[in-house]
């Protein structure tokens, strides 16, 4: 881990500030297996109805499932619906 990130993490823990804000991390909200909300993303890498790869500030999120739909696509958040089978952070 980089030095800046480590320092930021310490500060965030000390001040009890949500780490996603301080460290520029994504916030992933999963509603059962039917909906994923992703805040703070860097765009779509690949999209098909059973596999969705999304770019994160650090790394990549791969969502596998069936009948995946992007309900809403905006700069600040993406809402994905479908039968979600797995989330993978790469």
């Amino acid at each position: 881990m980089q030095r800046g990130v480590r320092f930021g993490k310490k500060v965030a823990e000390f001040l009890e500030i949500p780490q996603d804000i301080v460290l520029d991390l994504s916030r992933i909200t999963l509603v059962g297996n039917i909906e994923v909300t992703l805040e703070n993303h860097r765009g779509i890498i690949e999209y098909s109805s059973d596999r969705l790869r999304l770019a994160l500030p650090q790394g990549e999120l791969i969502i596998s499932g069936e009948e995946l739909i992007l309900v809403s696509l905006a700069q600040e958040e993406i809402v994905i619906r479908g039968r979600i089978k797995s989330l993978e952070l790469v």
């Binding site: 765009g43 779509i44 109805s49 739909i69 992007l70 309900v71 809403s72 696509l73």
Partner: peptide
């Protein structure tokens, strides 16, 4: 899709 995102074009119901 990414270019729309970058230009702030709102898209929905993508399938």
């Amino acid at each position: 899709l990414n270019q729309c995102l970058a230009r702030g074009i709102y898209l929905w119901d993508i399938r």
